[in-house]
Write a protein that binds this DNA or RNA. Structure first.
Lengths: 201, 201, 201, 201
DNA sequence: CCGTAACCGAGACGGTACGTCTGGTCTTTGA
DNA sequence: TCAAAGACCAGACGTACCGTCTCGGTTACGG
């Protein structure tokens, strides 16, 4: 046995959890992920270190939950994907919004830190993907299916692969900072992906 | 002035540098990036810690150089991009090779570690991009220009954006581990990007 | 404020303290003071370095306490000064014992090291004097006062100065190793100091 | 054989030696013995480290020589001991001068440092004693012999032991800082030692 | 008068230890 | 009965010096 005891989650202090979330997010934005330490979070939250170790396995896990909590509060369940009937316009709307989010300094720091951690740590990575990335991707897939039904897409395409044709390039530029992420770039991606690079017959 | 003194690189020990590269790569593959320490590298290389700190600013910088050195040795100046006249086939060849590299456990560990570090540290990130990513991208751009000249591409496309339509989705799957990276996926990306997702007129 | 935090001494681990004392004394006798390091003490005591730095400001301070602890154990409260009525004999007895102690290799190493450190570091020096040197000196002073009352000493002498007439020369030979420290020397000191160097009237 | 080569002292750079002496003394008075390093001396003297290691075995040896050189310059060969015919007065004159020297901050730092080092390192200690302490002691011995011849001392006394009755207590107070070193103390020592502590017959 | 052998300044090197910081565990204490 | 507080073992951090070792440059003999 490694775990001597499993903590009783019903007795968990809501107060402490909130304080830990707040402290973690504040520290990450103030000093960056690398200089954020568990000791620092505990001190700032007015909480014993053990209270953190009891409930989370790592600094990244704390931050992921804190970030999800933040996102939940912001989202109010408002998750949806526009469907005006014009696929190209809808995709541009969403990708431009994504670009704005990626350029928003409030989210950028923590998200980069989590993505980086997830790249190296598969367990965290899968949580990151499942909880943060998959939900919007599923909305893309839905929208593409409806477009296919409406004859706005070639039939027989794999929707997952198609989605990645849009978000792959964006993520690439964002993570690797090769070139600036702009609305124009988002528009180009949509146009190129829909029309194809080959000359039209 | 930040640096009070710059070391005299003409007196640098080639022997030590090589030993440090070897030790760094070995440790990263054996115990992972997170558990690789500068002390560990120094000990394994039979080198004083100061010899590392004298020449590199961080663990990541050591590893980046070590990895570049490794790549240089492997490459033998063989960098080129196939140009058989068949753009689609050439792109598939290259993307499949990229997939193989990304799945090769020898390169995967250090590359992920460096990418992750670069995501969080802009200075390292720009070096990572410039030294590892840009060279192949420039070959893509060349190939696309030659295709455009041959009438195999729609005229007026931005070649950088076009390149990212291919490598963006691949990088996305690789870094975020959303779905397995296969040759089939590489082929699909090429086909989708060239033909476009919209129904052909 | 210099000290940001003072550790809570009520939660101090007695186990660690003992282990540190033992390790420190063992190392000093085995390899000498100069080659005794805080890292070495910590390793030998099976203790984190911080546990030493938390409670002592320096290697010398650790050793002083360890040595005092050793002396306390040895002493059993047995501190006293002979008073047979024969001042000269009593002084010879005590000075001969002091000579024996100074020649005892078990005590010599640590004591010399502490004395040397105290000579250079006034803070440590005052502790060394107060805790190790003063107690026996006070016994001398008492004995001399009783001798004065008994008419065995010239009246009006400053007892501190008188004491130093005995222990000063001994300490001088011991610290500076000018000539060997023998019982004969101790006897001579007592005789010379009591009778004076001038011809008797 | 341990030393492979002995350096050729005839080719030694006088310039470097002087610069090293100056740097060593300056550093010791500025930052103290403990924080004076061979690297620091070399840098300050504008000298390669090897030039120090070539000619001296240790930091203490450098400082001892530097200090002897300083003393030689100050002394101008003026070494002598007053002999007015009044032994008590002569001794007080000399001891008061010694007290002044011990209290002189210019000499105090380096001398304490050397004494401390000599206490722990027997080789250095014997050099310290032989070169700095013995010469004046020999003058004392001479003066005491002349006093004995003049009938100012009890016959048959061991002059070395007698000398230590004077300088032992002084050294004791100086090194251990038990009580302040004053001219009055010097006078008392002379009086007590000459007349003795016992009541005069 | 010209090599050659040494010292010299400079500083990179393999190391050791420093004192600090953080990770994760274990213990005590107050509410 | 839990959580705050924080001491504990462990060990990496980056720095400072150690003493050794080249490396050119510069004297200063000795053939």
């Amino acid at each position: 046995m490694t775990d001597t005891k499993a903590p009783d989650s019903s007795r968990r202090s809501e107060r402490s959890r909130r304080a830990i979330y707040d402290a973690a997010l504040a520290l990450v934005t103030e000093v960056g992920y690398g200089r954020t330490t568990i000791e620092g979070i505990a001190a700032r939250a007015g909480v014993g270190k053990q209270t953190i170790y009891r409930w989370w396995p790592s600094k990244a896990a704390v931050l992921l939950e804190a970030f999800l909590d933040l996102a939940d509060q912001a989202a109010d369940g408002s998750y949806d994907f526009p469907d005006t009937g014009d696929l190209e316009a809808d995709l541009k709307t969403v990708l431009r919004a994504t670009v704005d989010e990626m350029n928003n300094p409030v989210y950028e720091g923590p998200t980069r830190a989590l993505a980086a951690e997830g790249i190296v740590d598969p367990v965290l990575g899968s949580q990151f993907v499942e909880k943060l990335l998959e939900p919007p991707i599923r909305l893309y897939v839905q929208r593409l299916r409806s477009a296919e039904a409406a004859g706005a897409l070639r039939p027989g395409l794999d929707p997952r692969t198609a989605v990645e044709l849009f978000i792959g390039p964006l993520t690439h530029r964002w993570l690797l900072r090769t070139l600036p992420l702009t609305h124009e770039y988002a528009d180009s991606i949509v146009e190129y992906a829909l029309s194809g690079l080959s000359p039209r017959g």
